[in-house]
Design a protein around this nucleic acid. Structure first.
Lengths: 207, 207
DNA sequence: AAGAACGCTGGACGAGCGAACAGTTAATAT
DNA sequence: ATATTAACTGTTCGCTCGTCCAGCGTTCTT
């Protein structure tokens, strides 16, 4: 439910900022006494009063009679967030990958990247220009889902112990990888092709 | 702090799923009595027992002696999430844009897109092939920050009452827009160029 | 000027809530 | 076979916590 911005007093903004900060740092909302202590109020009902005003302006919601039950409406409306580990170097299947510490983590809502919370997903950085024919650039972040590839899917797969991002093709019952750049040859695996994941979403920083 | 996956019993997984669900739907964690009611336990201490076990396995954290104070460790570690409104059609400056209901919302961590929580940002869909020279494709989602452009930034700007995504250039003290595709001419505004935002990040679904 | 909103003080109440403790039975690990 | 873990029941306690009520002074709106 879209809500245009509302006017808050300076003090109300301070209160709101404190709620956000506390939630970020502690993982839970503060109680009215936490708020009292933080702002140096003599009475906890000053906190109550502010919460009531913020609720009236629609920027928070409260569950009556429950401790720590302040809610940001946008938290309720948000699509479920998925944490995607970003690996710098992968030389393994997904099971081993999970045991490896990632280089970082991306967090996005599930709908944006087309990956459900329960699905296994990971991210890696595109290296080189082998997929430039479909506008996939060196340095892009590729988000992949661990699942069976269909022909023409773009996949991350293991070739000679290294992960590569290519188009997955099947000819004469034989799976292989093709670049989207004529300067790069097809890759035929010696054994069965080990696909690590199927490309779902691409992210590129432009600044 | 990276933690490899741990083994949970079936019941523990049910408990964990309930915690997630309750938090998503209500915005706050359940109390031990909420958990008791949900699972049909005769005693609230069954819930306590499960929470203790989950905490021991590291998949939740708890603040002692505080109500509803179960925390998912990954929530604490996550970069701050930013909700970016996605507009289908923009024929205005940012102030008017804010009053308009967006077509949807993207939620991403601030570090991934290079936009701080306090900054004003919005998203729109790329239309056409005018920026294909820098691998920006029709249908891509562009995330922009409202700020002053520097020469060579890619910006969303108003031309003839329509928003367009182009490279911002300044020559002889005159600002104008250039496509990254020779098939598209430079765009010189009749009046002062109204820039809506500067491109920060591009997102593309590949499936 | 009057009324409403803002931003607090202060006190007291009772329900919500985590926690401690004791225990049982079943399943799993050694 | 024994020990440990899992999954609960059951009772009680005391603290945390939101809520109500009364009020004051200041600022803003009509």
């Amino acid at each position: 439910m879209f809500a245009p911005p509302v006017k808050l007093t300076d003090r109300q903004q301070e209160l709101l900022a404190y709620l956000r900060q506390h939630q970020r740092e502690q993982g839970v909302m503060p109680s009215t006494r936490d708020i009292q202590r933080h702002f140096g109020f003599s009475s906890q009902t000053a906190a109550m009063s502010h919460l009531r005003a913020l609720e009236k302006k629609g920027v928070i919601q409260r569950h009556p009679h429950k401790a720590r039950a302040v809610v940001f409406p946008e938290d309720l409306q948000r699509e479920e967030i998925v944490d995607i580990p970003l690996y710098g170097h992968i030389a393994a299947g997904y099971a081993e990958m999970q045991q490896q510490e990632p280089d970082g983590t991306l967090s996005l809502d599930a709908a944006t990247i087309g990956v459900n919370r329960g699905s296994k997903a990971f991210a890696l950085r595109v290296r080189g220009e082998s997929m430039i024919g479909v506008n996939i650039c060196d340095g892009d972040i590729a988000i992949l889902e661990v699942k069976e590839p269909r022909p023409r899917d773009i996949v991350a797969a293991l070739i000679d112990g290294e992960t590569t991002l290519k188009r997955y093709l099947v000819e004469n019952g034989r799976a292989f990888l093709r670049a989207e750049n004529p300067a790069f040859p097809d890759l035929m695996p010696d054994e069965e092709l080990q696909v690590q994941g199927v490309l779902k979403t691409l992210i590129r920083r432009m600044d």
